[in-house]
Design a protein around this nucleic acid. Structure first.
Lengths: 114, 114
DNA sequence: ATATTATATAAGCGAATGGTTATATGGTCA
DNA sequence: TGACCATATAACCATTCGCTTATATAATAT
C-alpha cells in the first residue's frame, strides 16, 4: 500500500532528475558509453562544480555509478538501478537524439582524459 | 541543428513536468479516462488553486486539453500532443500504478461533478 | 438582475534549484 | 615529503516551485 505510493514518488523523482537539459544529455551520452567527468565539463562548457553537482543527483537516485581510475572518474549507467531498463526507451524517444549525442562527443575530443 | 537542441529541452521539460507526484498521478488518472478538476481536488485533498496550477503546467506543455461542460471542466490527454504516444509507456513503467490509480479514483466518488 | 457554482488568476511566502567562487579531498608523481 | 591533478564539497545568490489566501471570471439557476 505505502510501497505503491513510494513507487510513484520514486518515479516522479526519476523524471524530475531527467527534467534538466544538461542531465538528460549526460544520461544520453552514458547510454552510449562510459564517460569521464571532464568529458562533460568540456562538451557542455560548464564549470567543474556544476557538472559534479549534476552527477551527484544522478548518483543519488542510483541511476549512475562512478569508477575511479588514476586521475579520472568514469561514470556510467548502473545496471543494478531499478530504472536501468527504462533509460534506452526514454532517451530513444527524443527526436534527433543520435545526432545530438554525436555532436556532444565531438566537442569533448580536447578533454584532459583523452 | 537548433531543432535538435530544442527537442532535447522540450523532452526535458516534459520530464520536469512529470517530475512531481501530484502531476504524475493526474496524468496516470487521465491515461485511464477523462477527469474533472474536482476529481483531483477531492482525491488529492489539495486546494482548488493548487490543482488549477498543476493543470496549467500540464496544459502549457500541450500534454493535456480541457473541455468545458456546464459548471465543470473536463481534462484529458491531448492526442495531438507530440508526447501522447509516450504516456502509456511512462505511466506503465511505474510499479503498482494500476492499484494506485484505482485507489485515487475510489477517493473521488464524493466529487461534486459525480 | 442577483446569487451560486466551478475554475482561473494574482500576489505573497518559504523551500528547493542550479549556478557561482573558494576551498577541501584524495590519488599521482617528482 | 611536497607539488599537482581531477573531483567533491561548502557557502552564497538569484531564480523557480508549490503552496496559501484573496479575488476575478464565466456559466448556471432563481
Amino acid at each position: 500500500m505505502e510501497k505503491i505510493k513510494s513507487n510513484i514518488s520514486e518515479t516522479a523523482e526519476l523524471f524530475k532528475t531527467l527534467g534538466d537539459t544538461s542531465r538528460l544529455s549526460m544520461v544520453a551520452m552514458m547510454n552510449r558509453k562510459e564517460c569521464c567527468v571532464c568529458d562533460f565539463t568540456e562538451c557542455f562548457g560548464m564549470s567543474q562544480p556544476a557538472v559534479s553537482q549534476h552527477l551527484k543527483k544522478l548518483r543519488n537516485i542510483g541511476l549512475v555509478k562512478a569508477r575511479r581510475d588514476g586521475y579520472w572518474t568514469y561514470l556510467s549507467l548502473d545496471e543494478e538501478s531499478r530504472f536501468y531498463d527504462m533509460v534506452p526507451y526514454l532517451i530513444g524517444a527524443i527526436p534527433g537524439i543520435d545526432e545530438h549525442v554525436d555532436r556532444l562527443f565531438s566537442k569533448c575530443e580536447g578533454a584532459s582524459c583523452c
